[in-house]
């Protein structure tokens, strides 16, 4: 039986134009690969990272600090994967997402 866990971290929005189309699509795509619940909170608003609409309506601008919270059987891996996207500035190799 896998262990349940909750992981909390902070991430900073680095893309120049804020959390827009491409980063948003990448976040959702990544989040959907985990079974954990993944949320980002900004300015008192909480968004389900598996929901593009939630993320859009979060309207997080460049430089904003968001709290990342993951809970579930793969919480730690999910937190790592999501924060990595923020840390690398959503840069990608090849043409995975346009």
């Amino acid at each position: 039986m896998e262990s349940e866990g909750v992981v909390c971290r902070h991430v900073r929005v680095t893309p120049e134009e804020g959390l827009h189309l491409r980063p948003l699509q990448m976040l959702v795509r990544k989040a959907l690969t985990f079974s954990s619940t993944i949320t980002l909170t900004f300015d008192g608003r909480r968004a389900d990272v598996k929901s593009a609409f939630d993320l859009m309506l979060l309207a997080a601008p460049t430089g904003a600090i968001l709290s990342l919270e993951t809970s579930g059987s793969d919480a730690a891996a999910a937190a790592d994967a999501i924060s990595e996207l923020f840390e690398t500035g959503f840069s990608i190799s090849g043409s995975e997402v346009r």
Binding site: Q25, V28, R29, D48, K50, S51, A52, F53, D54
Partner: peptide, 8 residues
């Protein structure tokens, strides 16, 4: 992605 959005 939008059509499958859980919030929607």
């Amino acid at each position: 992605q939008m059509a499958q959005d859980p919030r929607l």
